[in-house]
Write a protein that binds this DNA or RNA. Sequence first.
DNA 1: TGGACCCAAGGCCAT
DNA 2: TGATGGCCTTGGGTCCAG
Length: 772
Amino acid sequence: MEEGWLLNADYVTRNNRAIVRLWIVSGENRLVLLDKNFEPYFYVIPERDSAEMEVERFVEKVEWTRRRDHGREVEVLKVYARHPQEVPRIREEISKLPSVREVREADIPFAIRYLIDKGLIPCGVIEWSGEELPSGEIEVSEILPVEKGTSDPPFKVMAFDIEVYNPHLSTKPERDPIIVISCCTNTGESKLFLAERKGGNSDDRGAIKEFISFVKSFDPDVIIGYNSDNYDWPYLRSRCEIVGIPLEIGRDGSPPKFRGGARRRIKIVGRANVDLYRVAERDLGEVKIKTLENIGAHLGIDFEKAEIPKDKIWEYWDSEREELLQYALGDSLLTMEIGLRLLPLQYEFSRMIRRPLDEVYAMGRGKQVESYLINEAYSRGELVPQKPRELERESYEGALVLKPKKGLHENVICLDFASMYPNIMIAYNISPDTLCKDCSEEEAYVAPYVNHKFRKEPPGFFKEILQRLIETRKKIKAEMKRYPKNSEQYRVLDVKQSTIKILTNSFYGYMGWSGARWYVKECAEATTAWGRYTLLTVVEMARKKGIEVLYGDTDSIFVLNSDKVQEFLEEVNRELPLELEVKGLYKTIFFTEKRKRYAGLLEDGSIDVKGFEVKRGDWSELAKEVQEEILRVILVERDPNKALEYVRKVIRELKDGKIPLEKLAIYKTITKELKEYKSIQAHVMAAMRAADLGRQIDPGTKIGFVVVRGSREKVRERAIPVEEAKKEEIDVQYYIEKQVLATAHRILKHFGYSKEDLLDRGQVSLMDFLGR
DNA sequence: TGGACCCAAGGCCAT
DNA sequence: TGATGGCCTTGGGTCCAG
């Protein structure tokens, strides 16, 4: 048997038959495995026995088999199609038959079906025996997954980035050529491909050709970019069409395939395309403005990169080319560095949910959970439910949030339930297949408030899966202790446990997602009901013990610390089927009267802020900086008066024009097409102005704007993109009142200061008045 | 006509 | 293309006193 890493899977059609094709990395070799012995199939749940005869009219082969549907055994027809492309049509026809109740699993892609049935793990190792064909491909006779301690696959990775000549505000492939393509590899190579000057214009033919031949010669397994799905790839494709060069970079010589519109995914045959921006969008929410540079800084990458304003790229190309080339190279080098840090988690997700890397990176969390469940269902002989027809969103009651006791508190301990929702699902056997309407109260757990019932036995689909995930994670965490924290083994195990944690914590949300195959509202509703009940129970238990509860949210309570707390913890853990543990100890903590907003000084001297504007991406840097400093002075220096003086100083600086423009920019996301907005607020207006000037504004675009002076009253009338603003035009009064004062007063009002106090009206009231 | 009040839209964060 | 709860700003409307 030979061995190799599974990079990707697809199929080819030869002699009208679909042949599964696997792309393998084996040492220095890149192999193609073909399996001719796998047929597309799906299931039919019959209404009557005549279904068999009626279904047979549409296909060559039908056989009876036993499966389970939500735990119950069912006799179903396994229906084989001649070719995967026939499946959608046959499925349509068959599901119309009166003798057919339901069609199942007809929408699982052929190559994915193969991976599931064979138990093969993408980004993992497989072994096979077979025969080499004259074409060099290998026809396999036997193929198996190999259980191995995981490590990162030995893939060759290439990062790339394009720069476009852009004397206009936007870039248009019909008009603007590519001027630089920069590439680098995880083997240390880097290349720049430059356009040539021809009669005053730049000609990118040569650059594109050289790029294509570099891709062919380096032959990467993984190609990464930053926003490449929405910019670099579409642009390259357009340029190739315009200049008449085929973008033949697939391992079979084919061009990339673009699938879908705004949420497009790009497939390159035999390789894996990964856009790190989409990974960052899903996994790095803490980075508010996701530029390449910000992501790099967040990941701790020490990288000096030349700064060139986007709209000046063409000028540098014309007159300061060397700097532009450094900049362009920096982009692909930084993309590579980011890739080296983000890819391991994507590899592990690929293994966990058994999907090729180039699908995993852009899948939403719900789809990732679903892929995992589909594999679990197969191994249990369970039929996969159909996708819900229409997304009928029925909302349900969620978590409980207590009103905080406002003010400063000393020596506060935060207790929380470990993975509350997954553990509730385990404790009360919540699962689509255990939900029962007519169980007796003895044989079922009955959810409080909502009265949904779940059979106590046998363990449900979700319970079994969650139990095993949590158990596996515990083992990994124990194993991690055997290695030093900076070791490779530790890092690999950490990625593994972290993947399990993310997946485990996504189950509840998946259950309540109306687009999920395993969507059952009652399950989600019962989970939160037990959550509310549990939180109320511990609050009551604490009070009975004379422990003061200051705040609580979903699965946590903040209490005044005392020697009673340890005993209380033990009592809770004795009486409830969940584990309450210490999450943190605050020397000082500050609550306002509002929920989900607090700031505390932890034992190690760090400050933990939740909810306040400091943590939000849609406030100016100035406002956030001021609020952060106020919280620090209050919690650490315990000197509200000093905070007051600080605010007054900042306001003076603002009036004196000493605050740089960048600190005044407010960033918000455009979430839909501009014309669809019912309410035109500042960020929408700023985006419209940007669009008028030629900037591309799509849903998902972050727009940075500032508020300038003017006769118009409404903020939106005075909101302009930050790139177009001058510092002299800033509406200082807006920033004082709506940004600095608003955020500062939210904290300082609890220490007896009014907005007037913060403004220092007494001393500068006349100036202030004239200033308006 | 301006201010008090209310509500919905919009966005982002806590859990 | 997991979930609900919650906070805050803005814009748009009504009502009412002056």
